[in-house]
Amino acid sequence: MTGRGAARRVTLLALLAVLAAWPWLAPYFAIFLMTEILILGLFAASFNLLFGYTGLLSFGHAAYFGTGAYVAALLLRDMAPPFLAVLAAAAVGAAVVALVIGWFSVRLTEVYFAMLTLAFGMMVYALVHQWRGLTGGSDGVAGFPLTAPLPGVAVNIADPVNYYYLTLILVAVSAYVLHRITVSPFGLILRSLRENSERASFAGVPVRRYRLAAFVVSGLFSGLAGALFAPFNRIAVPEMAHWTQSAEPVLMTILGGSQYFFGPFLGAGVFLLLRQWITSYTQEWMFFLGVILAFLVVFLPRGLLGLFDRWLGGRS
């Protein structure tokens, strides 16, 4: 047991070391790519708290991602507070939206839950798309400054390398927190809800309240991912709240393996690398990506990590 734990810790540390040395290891453009992988990996991991651990398939997670993106972009444009304050406000804002939407949505499960979250998600999209006076409509919010992370910390985060490190630190901390949540007593109850919510309910678990709590935590980290994504892109656009954005964490999670904590991160990496690679050859990347994803989902129901697990002689 201790041997396994130690080996695991060493590998994780090595992974972190590679990520920390990434700007020296990789060509310059790969910094952008890895920043995006980290941000969307966090988005997918927060989605997976609900999907993989609680057993609720949300099709509207772009609502919180988009809220985070817009709160961050608008704060930076209109008030320009320190960047970490922007991120905190955006994450909290997304959590509030998740609380409202979640309060209605957790009453349902399965496809009804998915449909309801999709509907709420599209309401948020319609709001940012049509409230031209505030959000700039389909032009989005652009041209905002990137402020110092904290007052007195004169780091220029407009530099892609610095932004990468900021993202890496925040994603690593968030991943740690999310992981702690999944192995905590709270996380175990969430898993019991996934396995059999009726039995959990008979055992005295207030099912809806736990689902709502998971929903809000998930929304909070999705919001943080969105708040990192808009400044990374230098723009917040309505597409970031669109259902196609909601589909990305679903695909990434299934691709990587929803049963594994790092599955969504791996899925995000493979998804974005595939996109990068295919778009170098053709503009019709969606078609080829679709074929590859369909193939993977049919033949690898437990995702890429499930496949590796099997290769490495893991669980049958």
Binding site: A14, L15, L19
Partner: peptide, 19 residues
């Protein structure tokens, strides 16, 4: 041990991506 190997495999994939 599998989990550790798993993470190691991810690490290797990461390095390949940079190649």
């Amino acid at each position: 041990m599998q989990r550790a190997r798993l993470l190691f495999a991810m690490l290797a994939a990461l390095l390949l991506a940079a190649a």
